[in-house]
Simulated scan of single mutants.
Amino acid sequence: MTEKLSEETRGPLLKPLFATGWEMDGARDALRKTFQFSDFVDAFAFMTKSAIWAEKWNHHPEWSNTYNRVTVVLTTHDVGGISALDAKLARKMDGLV
Rank of each mutant, 00 (worst) to 15 (best):
A19F: 01
D29H: 05
L96P: 13
D25S: 10
G81H: 06
S50A: 06
G95A: 06
V97S: 14
V73D: 07
F37I: 02
T2I: 04
V79E: 06
L13R: 13
T71E: 13
I52W: 09
S50F: 01
F40E: 04
D42R: 13
V41Y: 05
T75G: 03
W57H: 10
F44M: 12
L74Y: 11
V73F: 11
T66A: 07
K33T: 00
G81A: 03
W57C: 00
D25V: 03
V73G: 02
G81R: 11
D25R: 15
A54Q: 05
A43F: 06
W53A: 08
S6G: 08
T34I: 01
A90D: 13
E8S: 12
S6T: 15
T9Q: 13
M47K: 05
F37M: 08
D39I: 00
P61H: 10
A84G: 08
T76C: 04
A43N: 08
E55G: 08
L89R: 05
G81P: 04
R10L: 01
S50I: 00
R10D: 03
L14C: 06
G80Y: 10
E7W: 02
W63A: 09
A45P: 00
T34H: 06
K33A: 01
R91W: 06
N65M: 04
A87L: 07
R28G: 02
T34S: 12
F40I: 02
L17G: 09
K33P: 02
P12D: 12
Y67D: 02
A30N: 12
E3M: 07
D78P: 04
L85N: 14
D42E: 14
S6L: 07
A19D: 15
L96K: 14
G26Q: 15
D42W: 02
A51D: 02
G81S: 05
W22A: 07
L13M: 11
Q36D: 09
G11L: 05
D94K: 13
A87W: 10
T71G: 10
E7R: 10
E3N: 14
K15M: 12
P16K: 14
F46S: 04
K33E: 06
W53S: 11
G95F: 07
L13Q: 15
E23I: 00
G21I: 02
A90C: 09
L31G: 05
E62Q: 14
P16C: 04
I52D: 14
T71I: 00
S64H: 03
I82F: 02
V73Q: 12
P12E: 14
K88F: 03
M93F: 14
R69I: 00
K49P: 02
S50L: 08
P12V: 08
A19Q: 14
K4F: 01
N68G: 02
M93E: 12
F46W: 12
S38V: 04
G11S: 10
D42H: 11
A84F: 00
S83N: 09
F18M: 07
A45T: 08
E3V: 01
W63S: 11
V70Y: 08
E3C: 04
V72P: 11
G80N: 11
A30H: 12
R32H: 05
V72M: 10
